[in-house]
Computed example of a mutant assay.
Amino acid sequence: MTVTSGKDMLLRLADGEGGYDTIGGLRTKTFSLASGTVDITHADSPGWRELLPCGGIRQANVSGNGLFIDDDAAERARSLFFSGEHETWQLQIPGFGDLVGAFQITNLDYAGEFRGEASFSLTLASAGEVTFTAAVS
């Protein structure tokens, strides 16, 4: 993965018509992928822990903060949080690829300073399979 601008990472929400809408003006975005393990060490193991290949639960988490740049994006995020529904999200990472899957908003924060802009942050947790498509070089 070559050096790329953080502004080019996009968090997008399915628009219901086969496309995606960028969600707000996110200034920072973070994603993490994790995989649990299943320990299968037994009495005849050679003294090292043994793990079941592909045995653990995989998960993806995405978080970001920034500014809502239109009322529709703010309303969709708020609505999804309060309904608890899963929706298809896409995270585009230039030079790496795209992650697409069902996510649930698990955290939605709003903040603002007296002489500054109002901002928001959100956290998404995967709620099913997440597919990965590598970036084309």
Score class of each variant (00 low, 15 high):
73 A>K: 00
123 T>C: 05
74 A>K: 07
113 E>T: 12
125 A>Q: 12
39 D>L: 05
16 G>T: 14
77 A>R: 12
72 D>K: 13
92 Q>N: 14
111 A>I: 08
75 E>Y: 07
84 G>A: 06
72 D>H: 09
20 Y>Q: 10
7 K>L: 10
53 P>M: 07
75 E>L: 10
34 A>V: 02
62 V>W: 09
113 E>Y: 08
81 F>S: 12
12 R>A: 14
36 G>Y: 03
13 L>Y: 05
95 G>L: 12
12 R>T: 12
1 M>L: 10
64 G>K: 02
118 A>G: 11
88 T>S: 09
131 T>I: 05
26 L>V: 13
62 V>S: 05
49 R>H: 02
127 A>P: 00
75 E>N: 10
59 Q>S: 13
47 G>Y: 05
119 S>W: 04
94 P>K: 03
99 L>G: 00
13 L>E: 03
17 E>G: 10
29 K>V: 11
8 D>V: 08
130 V>Y: 08
113 E>L: 08
77 A>Q: 11
48 W>L: 13
117 E>V: 10
133 T>F: 02
19 G>T: 09
16 G>P: 13
78 R>I: 03
110 Y>A: 07
134 A>R: 11
42 H>C: 12
92 Q>R: 15
5 S>A: 14
24 G>P: 07
73 A>T: 02
2 T>A: 15
93 I>Q: 02
46 P>M: 05
118 A>P: 06
61 N>M: 13
40 I>W: 02
26 L>H: 12
28 T>C: 04
45 S>M: 07
34 A>W: 01
94 P>E: 04
71 D>F: 13
118 A>Y: 11
104 Q>T: 12
93 I>T: 04
39 D>P: 00
6 G>I: 02
46 P>I: 02
35 S>H: 11
79 S>W: 11
27 R>S: 12
53 P>C: 08
103 F>R: 00
117 E>F: 07
102 A>F: 06
40 I>Y: 01
27 R>V: 14
54 C>Q: 08
58 R>C: 07
52 L>W: 00
135 A>L: 01
89 W>H: 01
1 M>T: 11
110 Y>W: 09
80 L>A: 06
12 R>M: 15
21 D>C: 13
116 G>S: 08
124 L>W: 02
48 W>I: 10
57 I>D: 07
61 N>F: 11
80 L>H: 06
29 K>Y: 03
80 L>I: 04
94 P>W: 07
136 V>P: 06
62 V>T: 04
92 Q>W: 15
39 D>M: 05
111 A>L: 09
91 L>P: 01
80 L>W: 08
88 T>C: 09
22 T>A: 09
3 V>A: 14
43 A>S: 11
87 E>V: 13
34 A>T: 09
113 E>S: 11
73 A>D: 02
6 G>L: 08
120 F>E: 00
64 G>Y: 05
85 E>F: 04
67 L>M: 15
132 F>R: 03
130 V>T: 07
120 F>D: 00
103 F>I: 01
70 D>Y: 11
39 D>V: 05
42 H>L: 08
29 K>M: 10
90 Q>D: 05
42 H>T: 06
41 T>L: 09
126 S>C: 09
119 S>G: 12
12 R>F: 04
49 R>S: 04
41 T>I: 07
124 L>F: 03
120 F>L: 00
77 A>M: 15
124 L>R: 03
24 G>H: 12
78 R>Y: 04
39 D>K: 05
92 Q>V: 15
